[in-house]
Write a protein that binds this DNA or RNA. Structure first.
Lengths: 254, 254
DNA sequence: CGAAAACTTGACCCAACTCAACGAACGTGG
DNA sequence: CCACGTTCGTTGAGTTGGGTCAAGTTTTCG
């Protein structure tokens, strides 16, 4: 049970780079505490200097978010099972954004000091986390591009594609759907639109046969079509970091 | 002369975390080659697997950029003296964006292997670079927010504020101006607007006394005013990582 | 079962875009 | 150092994608 949780971290880091057996053992030996958050709970607050823990998501979803003076909210990333939340703050003095639970969230907290120590002792772990950071940065760049230069239809479709691929990579979906627990307002906050316009956009995508919806579940029958509509190529997710061949989670189109 | 160049890297990393004398010496001993790029030259191309070098900017400016299928361009970051360009790709198999020279650019190329080795031998260097990565990520998050949730006036002012602060931190400006060698089209590509609208926005900011312009130089007399107009707080730049007190490059307003 | 939250839909509006023309600055070669 | 082509900046007129407001309707959940 205990092992099962930290092995999630091992598996995650393994997708980033090869780990030595000693490193894997050391990860499984990390001390941790378990914690549950309920939906709108803050896990980290912007400006907080209390960054002693690093959270690993075991189940549920979380998102990072920033607010403008006007009170507008921008979701800058969404995280799921296997993601490390506080790598982004591991060496910083204070948080520069908020992290919030999107759903009921099961977190495994690891002491910052233990993690820093682990990285020192096992460089491959440091490398894996470094790569994780790089992938996050790549996603940020893609989101800037998405929000800055694509129209509503493309933006929303792109987001759906990203989630479908990431959910599958996290072992949570089949790649052809995304049962994302986001409200339309939250989707809007992620792609820089209003909830009203997200609603119209989703309806249009459904009308055009690009997506199917039932409740909050969104699915695709024609992956190539969604990809095209969303101007999506999965390469920025760097899911093939460790694979030698070109086997990929989904056809990425690069 | 040779030392003078790599000492730029030492100084840069020192702003991220304390370095051991041995680490500093090791940095100064890194083998490198110098290279000049002229303005629209590509330094790294999206998809490239040729990521053997890591470039340090000695003089000039560079930017990262992504293109959509529609051919629209989004500039996702701008870099200046002291910035490390390829930390973003150091452990990845291929580039996920383009890096281009914004001006004539003097780069100091360090072998990826030498850098990886340095990080292994001197953990403080790894930490400093890690922090550098974290700050880049923080800037990305801020840009997503800027592009996704602010109006044109605020967006442009925010960008100008960021550059003023970063230029000063890089020893290139007085904090009250930014002589940025960007065309209005490039500014537009950075904030998700058209060049025409950037032009109108800059004129409006000038008319309202927020900025002054002569040629491409933009300056502020009233920093607090620009900050307010741009909804800017410098905290996301984490410039006070190593300072113990609250001394800051500019009044950051947090 | 009832209240609150989320989703829909319509009518109207406006910030930013497009297109287009022109002027200013810049660099390059003769 | 000047002529000239090219890039960059400026401005106007008209258009539009997405926002706002507001009133339902449906879903969710205690």
């Amino acid at each position: 049970m205990v092992q099962a949780s930290l092995s999630l971290l091992v598996n995650k880091l393994r997708t980033r780079t090869a780990l030595s057996p000693a490193a894997e053992a050391a990860i499984l030996d990390l001390p941790f505490t378990r914690r549950i958050y309920d939906s709108p709970a803050y896990i980290v607050r912007d400006g907080s200097t209390d960054l002693g823990q690093c959270g690993l998501i075991v189940s549920g979803f979380a998102f990072r978010q920033k607010l403008t003076v006007e009170g507008a909210r921008q979701i800058v990333s969404v995280h799921m099972r296997g993601d490390l939340l506080d790598l982004q703050h591991l060496f910083l003095k204070y948080a520069d954004h908020n992290i919030q639970a999107l759903t009921r969230l099961e977190i495994l907290n690891i002491e910052r000091a233990a993690l820093q120590d682990l990285i020192l002792r096992h460089p491959s772990v440091g490398t894996a986390m470094w790569i994780d950071l790089l992938v996050d940065a790549s996603i940020y760049r893609t989101w800037i591009t998405n929000v800055g230069r694509r129209d509503a239809r493309t933006r929303v479709a792109h987001l759906l594609c990203e989630f479908a691929v990431r959910l599958k990579a996290a072992g949570l979906g089949d790649g052809g759907s995304c049962s994302l627990p986001m409200t339309q307002e939250q989707i809007g906050d992620a792609v820089g639109l209003t909830s009203v316009h997200v609603n119209r956009t989703l309806k249009a995508l459904e009308r055009d046969g690009v997506i199917q919806r039932s409740k909050r579940d969104i699915s695709f029958t024609d992956w190539q079509l969604v990809r095209r509509v969303g101007d999506f190529s999965a390469s920025y997710l760097h899911l093939d970091q460790t694979s030698t061949a070109g086997e990929s989670v989904l056809q990425t189109g690069r």
